[in-house]
Write a protein that binds this DNA or RNA. Structure first.
Lengths: 109, 109
DNA sequence: CGTGTAAGGAATTCTGACACG
DNA sequence: CGTGTAAGGAATTCTGACACG
């Protein structure tokens, strides 16, 4: 995945009927996973839920785990752990970037 | 824009109400530009139109040109010309790629 | 706990048409 | 030509609840 891909991946524009087509989940399931705080759709002015491609991917992962009998509670923990791991890696990269920039500067003097 | 970004850019998943929010155009306008063959939404099983982010961007370009008084007919020609230009560039790149691959091979012998 | 379903209402979308300019 | 609008119907979405296991 590229970096600038995010603009489309994270825009909340897909209504529940299309998410249903995309994931094969029922509307009931999709709304329930929101209730359990696994996904966070936005709303239109009138209250219709809007999801992102990222949400759709998360839902497909949830579906896989549910098939393996994993409870939503557990899934939430797993997602939190993965998020932490990603953030840690990102933080590391940024520090490395800062160091590189620093040494480039000192070498140029 | 990156290459793998396309997967999200071109997926037809956005219903007309959201496209309306995104572009500021009326539903009437959006459907009319389809009638004039400027955009090509897909349909759900029940007939609801679904647009891609790419369609949304095209619609915004159309909106700009319409504000300048350009007729849909003209806009269509312009879009066709741009598409040809893109294809020509792409073709050129591919030929270049083929040539490079060829010379790399002959040099390795 | 996770999901189905029936209920009722509100909002959405669709098509074909008439209007205006 | 491009766009607004009223019309009528069909499909969508929402919430709160009851059911089952």
């Amino acid at each position: 995945m590229s970096v600038d891909e995010g603009s489309y991946r994270d825009r909340k524009v897909i209504v529940i009927g299309v998410v249903k087509e995309l994931t094969g989940l029922s509307e009931r399931q999709i709304r329930y996973y929101e209730e359990r705080k696994l996904i966070f759709p936005e709303r239109t002015a009138k209250g219709t839920r809007k999801y992102s491609f990222s949400d759709v991917e998360t839902l497909m992962e949830i579906a896989n785990k549910r098939e393996d009998g994993v409870q939503t509670n557990e899934i939430k923990k797993e997602m939190k752990a993965e998020k932490k791991k990603r953030n840690d890696l990102l933080r590391e990269e940024m520090i490395r970037g800062q160091l590189n920039a620093h040494f480039r500067n000192t070498n140029n003097r």
